[in-house]
Computed example of a mutant assay.
Amino acid sequence: MLKETAQEKRFWAFWLLGILLLAAQIVMNVWLVTDATPLGMSDHQAAGNAARVDYIHAAWAASGVMDLAIYSMELDLIFIGIYAWGAFAGGRMFAAVPHPMLARLGKVIMVAAIGFAITDYAETISQLIQAAFTGGHELLSSVAATARPIKTILFLVTFFGVLVGLAIRSWKSRAA
């Protein structure tokens, strides 16, 4: 059995911690579900205009979960950095191997991880400013709603890309 490199250790530590933080956010989201937000935080991300954001904030305030929503957004900021760094490290790990398909996949994961971080930070910072300071804001709600589908696709590319990369790497090492 080969000894793990520093790059592999960094990948596993950050990527798995990122997944754990995502799981914590999913659990927290249960309390953010109201009649106004049947999907919880996802409804806030997709709001798209100031009036809808204000409506969501009012529903969360009436349910006593506005502070939890802000904490969830703050936790999301931490998640983004940790997960994106872990996914990028995994992409770098794959890109460094001599297997052409795995190397290409690694480069795709690296680019997707950077794009994910940029778009998810744009979305979450826009949300947090509205939730903690300004209330609904047309530009910020539009930024969040526009970034949401892009960051979702990039997250899926990184997540499933890493899983596929791990499977290829495992298959390759068994074949050798």
Rank of each mutant, 00 (worst) to 15 (best):
G40E: 01
D54T: 08
A50H: 01
N49G: 07
S63G: 11
I56Q: 02
H57I: 15
V33N: 09
Q45N: 11
T37S: 05
L32V: 09
R52N: 05
M41V: 15
A46Q: 09
T34Y: 08
A59N: 11
A62K: 14
W60T: 04
T37K: 05
L32Y: 00
T34S: 06
M41F: 15
H57P: 00
I56M: 00
H57F: 15
A46Y: 12
A36V: 03
A50Y: 01
L32E: 11
S42V: 13
A59Q: 09
G48N: 02
A59C: 09
A36M: 01
Y55M: 09
T37H: 01
D43H: 09
P38A: 13
D54S: 07
G48F: 03
A51E: 15
V53R: 00
G48V: 05
A36N: 01
A46I: 06
I56A: 01
H44K: 08
A58T: 15
W60S: 03
V33K: 11
A61W: 15
Q45M: 12
L39H: 12
T37P: 03
L32K: 07
M41D: 10
A36T: 01
G64A: 13
P38L: 11
G64E: 12
N49T: 06
A59P: 07
S63R: 07
Q45H: 14
Y55V: 04
N49Y: 09
H57Q: 15
R52T: 10
